[in-house]
Amino acid sequence: MATKTHTISLPCLLIALSLLQATLAAVRFGATNNASSTLGGQRFDRYIGIPYTLQTMPEVANFIWKLFQQPTEGERRHYYPDDVVNVIIQDLQDGALGETGDNNVYMSAKGIETYPPGDGAKFMFTSILYHEMTHIFQWSGKGTAPGGLTEGMADYTVLKSPFYVEGYSAPWEGEGERWDEGYGATSRFLEYCDSLREGFTPELNRMMREVYMPEYWNLLFGKDVDQVWGEYNKRLN
């Protein structure tokens, strides 16, 4: 009986290798409840759950990549060799509702105890997930960017997300004493900078891939950040 031999051309081989690399580069998602014996862990299982978390994580990731204008894998932050982003429900001892470490998002079981029941719990959980997953994927100049700026960018994602509620998810314009105060104050400032230069925040994020430098503001605006912050406050007041 004749043996049939299958051959593959070099172009086909290169395409196959490219598809394999794309599969390896794609981010995978995992979720674990390490606090299932606690009230918060049980509340998570009842109102949110692992299936909802695994369904929502890719949606949040795709929103972040679109917001920060990163359509290709090469423009995005990865965690090799596994490239798995995990959400872990556990007791956090510092009082935070959520925090990140490397490629993990830790959601506070104690914080989940305070969520409203039903869909309100999913709303709270998901809005925090937008913030924390931004820390997973944003560039921070390998730790050289001001902490208030990276926190502000994370709240900027919430501000632009479907889970933003005026006056609840972020403060009104004009709050904050410094541009790098972080969270809502900085997110509103970044929104203002977008109004001056379309796509400013994604552009600043790209520039911070390797290092953060104050000179970036001069490159983008022709003036330093303190001057832009002063103009922002003057306009509001």
Score class of each variant (00 low, 15 high):
Q69L: 10
Q69V: 11
Q70G: 10
Q70V: 07
Q70W: 01
Q70D: 06
Q70A: 06
Q70P: 06
Q70K: 15
P71R: 01
P71T: 03
P71Q: 14
P71I: 13
P71A: 04
T72V: 12
T72N: 13
E73C: 09
G74E: 07
G74A: 15
G74P: 00
G74I: 11
G74R: 09
E75A: 11
E75L: 08
R76N: 07
R77P: 01
R77S: 05
H78Q: 05
H78F: 04
H78W: 08
H78G: 06
H78T: 04
Y79I: 07
Y79S: 01
Y79F: 04
Y80K: 06
Y80V: 07
Y80A: 07
Y80D: 02
Y80T: 02
Y80N: 03
P81R: 07
P81I: 08
P81F: 04
P81Y: 06
P81N: 00
D82P: 02
D82A: 09
D82M: 15
D83W: 03
D83Y: 00
D83A: 11
D83I: 03
V84P: 01
V84L: 13
V84F: 01
V84N: 05
V84Y: 10
V85H: 02
V85N: 06
N86E: 12
N86R: 13
N86I: 07
V87P: 00
V87S: 12
V87Q: 02
I88K: 15
I88G: 12
I89F: 10
I89K: 06
I89Y: 03
Q90V: 00
Q90M: 07
L92E: 13
Q93V: 15
Q93H: 14
D94V: 09
D94W: 03
G95P: 10
G95M: 08
G95Q: 03
G95L: 06
A96G: 04
A96D: 10
A96W: 00
L97T: 00
L97E: 08
L97V: 09
L97D: 08
L97M: 13
G98M: 03
E99D: 09
E99S: 12
E99F: 05
T100K: 08
G101E: 10
D102R: 15
D102M: 02
D102L: 13
D102I: 00
D102Y: 10
N103R: 15
N103C: 06
N104E: 03
N104V: 15
N104M: 13
N104P: 07
N104T: 14
N104W: 01
V105C: 02
Y106V: 05
Y106R: 14
M107E: 14
M107I: 14
M107G: 12
M107T: 08
M107N: 08
M107C: 11
M107Q: 12
S108M: 04
S108A: 14
S108R: 03
S108K: 11
A109V: 03
A109D: 05
A109H: 02
A109K: 02
A109Q: 09
A109I: 11
A109N: 00
K110H: 11
K110Q: 12
K110N: 07
K110M: 01
